[in-house]
Write a protein that binds this DNA or RNA. Structure first.
Lengths: 225, 225
DNA sequence: GAACACTTACTGACTTGTCAGTAACCAAGC
DNA sequence: GCTTGGTTACTGACAAGTCAGTAAGTGTTC
């Protein structure tokens, strides 16, 4: 058996015994590889993107990439986790807003995304590919959807309760969930159309319009009494 | 050079020159292959699906498939065109409805789609993959979006004008286009979420809710005076 | 008998993953 | 502070497989 097969090892296991520690600079090198992986899987897709192409971008061979991540599947998983990590760092401690502010945040995200084609494409390609049988990213995508739906549902509930001015008002949960799925759907779907035909779709405006429409409709129908 | 490289040949070109005529039953056999292609590209994606798997389903070798369609790219294109052909036949001459009926039709489509996982997955996988560099289906998908946006925009205009009771009322075209993109987007996006997690998303209800919301919002904002 | 509908056989390009070897590195022991 | 032993970070070669596409041959049908 050769090399660090289990990806990024823990710095120190606390107890006795031999300590396996990566050399200085290895963490940065691995991040480079993950960025490259995101680039090629994002533009070519997982199946059509090769380890050799990823390796090329950081000036090593494909065997070198496998040394760090063990397999292509694990590389993809690591790259997606890396993306999450970076996304969170970008928020710099400030938590994702709730209530009505979340929808402002989503509209802003759409506006920013119109300037970050690469990232949008990566997300779009992988999300589409993930519905394929046995795709290594399907768990990640499914989980992402679940978390997002939860956050948006909660924000919607806050808005509806705020409208009612009554913490214990009766809210139709089914409406909230439909609306939450729809908001995510409209964002993803618009990204897809925009990627294929940027002149035909205004990502920011269409997203803002749709979120506003769904938000209005939720406010109008989710309160039971 | 071997075989019919240009896919399905015209029965007779009218003018002079060689006439290639397929044997009786060949058209049906080709349709079988196309159905198989739709199945494997739909479930595995274009890059991950192989000609051998398509061929297997109709009991021939992959070279036999190439005899009929020339290349894998051309097979995919033919399969997509076949899908369009079948979809139109399914409507049996009755044209796609316009005006407010179109939105009823879209909601119905979503309800039917919840029972046709295979077709939805094919559409979803290929749409996602198509944003990839140089993908053979990207023209088809782009065109499909363009046509759909046009139809929905027109139906929205009809609804808004009908509300106004005035054929020459001033309608905000930008709003119509945003709404049209959004309706397609929400349908596609919900399909994706539903494929990954059928228990977490109600395809029919969420689609109906979102279409209603966007339609309402369009009626409220598209009329200028 | 000629085009058709294939099959068989094969090529060349790519794939991921394995393996042995090597140079740089690093900590411990003397 | 220099050796020593082990680890890390690779490389290059290769195995084993898959893939699309080509070419030639065979039986069948028009």
């Amino acid at each position: 058996m050769t090399g660090a097969r289990t990806g990024i090892p823990e710095p120190s296991a606390g107890g006795g015994g031999r300590v396996h520690r990566p050399r200085a600079g290895t963490a940065q090198r691995r991040d480079e590889i993950l960025r490259a992986a995101l680039r090629t899987f994002g533009s070519k897709g997982y199946h059509n993107g090769s380890l050799a192409e990823v390796a090329d971008q950081v000036g090593i061979t494909h065997a070198g990439v496998l040394h760090h991540f063990g397999s292509k599947d694990q590389l993809l998983i690591a790259a997606l986790e890396f993306r999450d990590r970076v996304d969170v760092e970008h928020l710099e401690g400030q938590h994702i807003p709730g209530g009505i502010d979340l929808f402002r945040h989503l509209r802003l995200t759409a506006r920013l995304n119109a300037e970050r084609r690469g990232i949008v494409q990566a997300y779009s390609v992988l999300t589409g590919e993930a519905v394929t049988e046995g795709h290594p990213a399907s768990d990640w995508v499914r989980n992402r959807f679940t978390v997002l739906r939860g956050e948006i549902t909660e924000a919607l509930r806050a808005v509806v309760l705020d409208d009612a001015g009554d913490e214990s008002a009766d809210v139709d949960e089914a409406v909230l969930e439909r609306a939450a799925s729809a908001i995510i759907a409209v964002m993803d779907g618009l990204q897809n159309q925009w990627l294929l035909d940027p002149d035909a779709v205004d990502l920011a405006d269409s997203t803002a319009f749709a979120i506003e429409a769904i938000l209005e409709s939720t406010r109008a129908t989710a309160r039971r009494r």
